[in-house]
């Protein structure tokens, strides 16, 4: 394997609901830095049905090149056809680094293709860097339940691959005039040869606001005492117009379903305000919310580790504090809303 044949930083562009997934845009941001450091190009690989128009989004967010596989066979994500397309692209154009979002789809695709290439794959990366001269990718991730961080290298194989946690890297601010090169690719795949078929896609709409998209997340832990006590979390979230998050222990107790779990084995969130109420602040929880803009903790134990990871804390009984908080918010919020509306009207007048 001649490493000089392998050039360019690539991002697998995951398509979700007809758009490039946010995590892929974040990876273009991270990938841009790596590509600049190496003095090489940043490319995206776009696979799907009617996806070619999305390439322009990738350029706006930093890509120089987009390889497109556009074919009806790619309508739903399936390991086999997607893997064959991406594998084809890797063999033709030989990237030195290939990054994927650590989503169900990204992980599935990356694990399969790593075996076929073959090459090394680092899972759930949270920090990325590259050695300027050697091009060695430094992929770091929490290990052993978040007890340590480990940097993982892949010295003898190319491409070097990693899945990267959503919401950890930052997308660049879009540059509407930025463009790049589209390279259309084809691979002949026949539907009759495919061994899997997607029969139905079911969206579960029970979650009012997706917690990874909400500006305000109100998360509760075992400290809420019971499923009934946990209702206060819902009420506070409602009062603020936010989404409900939870610790793993709460999910395991059956107070709320797993979609709401924040942390290493749940979702990573980066809202503008994060409330951790009755949550002890175990490292596995904290890794999922530490990048939030403003973190507020309420816990009755002054020594709870969560106070190390928050911006502001209240030591007290959540069952007493939260109802007070809800009451005051209900009083104040209408005033704030009218005030800002007034200001707007004055502004417009």
């Amino acid at each position: 394997m001649n490493f000089d044949d392998y050039r360019g930083i690539w991002v697998y562009l995951e398509v979700k609901d007809g758009k490039i997934a946010p995590v892929s845009l974040e990876l273009l941001g991270a990938g841009r830095k790596l590509a600049d450091k190496r003095g090489t190009e940043l490319a995206g690989v776009l696979i799907g049905s009617n996806v070619k128009p999305l390439a322009s989004t990738a350029f706006v967010y930093g890509a120089d090149v987009v390889y497109v596989y556009d074919d009806p066979i790619f309508e739903h994500y399936r390991t086999e056809p997607y893997m064959r397309a991406l594998h084809d692209c890797c063999q033709k154009h030989k990237p030195e680094v290939l990054l994927y979002g650590a989503t169900p789809t990204g992980k599935d695709l990356a694990s399969a293709i790593a075996t076929d290439l073959p090459t090394g794959l680092t899972a759930d990366t949270t920090m990325l860097d590259i050695e300027e001269d050697t091009g060695l990718l430094l992929a770091s991730r929490p290990a052993f339940g978040g007890n340590i961080m480990a940097t993982i290298l892949c010295k003898k194989y190319r491409p070097q691959m990693a899945t990267v946690r959503p919401k950890v890297m930052k997308a660049l601010s879009p540059q509407p005039n930025r463009t790049g090169k589209i390279v259309e690719e084809h691979i002949s795949l026949r539907e009759e040869e495919m061994r899997t078929k997607v029969l139905e896609v079911v969206r579960e709409t029970t979650k009012k606001v997706r917690i990874d998209e909400a500006d305000i997340v109100v998360a509760g832990g075992k400290g809420m005492g019971s499923k009934e006590g946990f209702q206060l979390i819902h009420q506070l979230a409602d009062a603020l117009g936010g989404a409900v998050g939870a610790s793993r222990d709460v999910v395991e107790a059956g107070w709320i379903d797993h979609h709401h779990q924040v942390g290493q084995t749940g979702v990573t969130v980066t809202p503008k305000i994060y409330f951790a109420i009755g949550i002890s602040g175990a490292i596995q929880h904290v890794v999922g919310m530490q990048n939030s803009e403003l973190i507020i903790a309420i816990n009755k134990d002054p020594n709870a580790p969560i106070f190390q990871s928050c911006h502001y804390g209240i030591v007290g009984d959540a069952l007493e504090i939260v109802p007070l908080l809800i009451e005051r918010i209900k009083e104040e919020l209408p005033n704030i809303k009218t005030a800002s509306k007034l200001k707007e009207e004055i502004h417009h007048a």
């Binding site: 090394g120 961080m149 892949c154 190390q308």
Partner: peptide, 25 residues
């Protein structure tokens, strides 16, 4: 095994926030 662990370190300890004082209200 193509991947090797080159380095392990303890995650940085966060500095901690400010506790609000006074009565609950």
């Amino acid at each position: 095994s193509p991947t090797i662990v080159s380095k392990v370190w303890a995650p940085p300890k966060p500095e901690g926030g400010q506790l609000l004082e006074g009565t609950a209200q």
